[in-house]
């Protein structure tokens, strides 16, 4: 059913900390690795070892340069995957009912057997979260690792999305935004978590924590190199005599 649920019991999603992400792409790789063997058809690639490889990825990292007026530029790595929007346009545009948002936990999924590969959902997503599988010709998107988070066959510590589990910097966090006392809700509150493109009216669940302000010293530090001075001995005497001349 492609009408959206009025509300969901849980709002599962991610917090992505732009202050911490080091841009290592480990989450990208682990996402691809897990999702090529997990939910639905494998995440396909075409010409994977050729000169023009193209493949479906559910998570990609962009790297931006941010230049304030008064201090030098800084680099911000920007991971981007499905934001599991509350008002997901990709769900309502789907003509077949393949795209849906779960009432229970708010995860947006594609039922691949029903997908006709028209691509309209990808057009309706402002974030570029959906990609057509070049082999299977069905729409692929982040499942929030629905086949991990409820999976009782894996150790409890692994029951988080693959991207969160693998992040070596702890830049990604998984939790329930419907619970005001969850880690993700607290983090979002304390760090001023933001919606991406709020003007699109999608009400994204995933939140981005902005980079913390960089320290800005009152005055630029004066860098002085001390003059080399020889202490004592023959060299010290020569140094002293030559300076006196």
């Amino acid at each position: 059913m492609t009408t959206l649920p009025a509300s969901t019991n849980k709002k599962l999603g991610l917090v992505i900390d732009l202050d911490v992400c080091v841009g290592c792409h480990a989450c990208v790789v682990n996402c691809k690795e897990w999702n090529t063997g997990g939910y639905g058809a494998p995440l396909g690639d075409s010409d994977a070892y050729g000169s023009n490889p193209v493949g479906a990825w559910l998570n990609r990292i962009h790297t931006f340069e941010v230049t304030p007026d008064d201090v030098p530029a800084s680099i911000v790595h920007f991971p981007k995957s499905c934001l599991h929007c509350e008002d997901a346009p990709c769900v309502t545009v789907c003509p077949t009912g393949a795209s849906y948002k779960r009432t229970d936990d708010g995860i947006v999924l594609v039922e691949e057997d029903k997908c006709i590969g028209c691509g309209l959902c990808a057009w309706s997503c402002p974030y570029g979260a959906r990609e057509m599988d070049p082999v299977e010709q069905v729409m692929k998107k982040c499942t929030l690792c629905v086949d991990r988070i409820y999976n009782e066959n894996i150790p409890e510590i692994d029951r988080t999305p693959a991207c969160v589990r693998t992040c070596p910097a702890n830049a990604r966090h998984f939790g329930d935004f419907a619970d005001p006392n969850s880690d993700v809700s607290i983090m979002t509150r304390e760090r001023g978590g933001m919606d991406l493109m709020p003007e699109m009216g999608t009400k994204p669940v995933n939140q981005y924590l902005p980079p913390r302000p960089k320290t800005r010293p009152e005055a630029a530090p004066q860098i002085t190199t001390p003059e080399p001075k020889a202490e004592g001995g023959l060299l010290g005497w020569v140094d002293k005599m030559l300076e006196a001349i």
Binding site: V28, N52, P53, V54, G55, A56, W57, R60, I61, H62, T63, F64, E65, V66, T67, P68, D69, A73, I75, K80, A122, E131, M132, P134, P210, P211
Partner: peptide, 16 residues
């Protein structure tokens, strides 16, 4: 924070 420009695309090649 400041003026933003893309420094690196997610992947060197094209994508969907």
């Amino acid at each position: 924070i400041g003026k933003v420009r893309l420094l690196e695309k997610p992947h060197s090649g094209e994508n969907y």
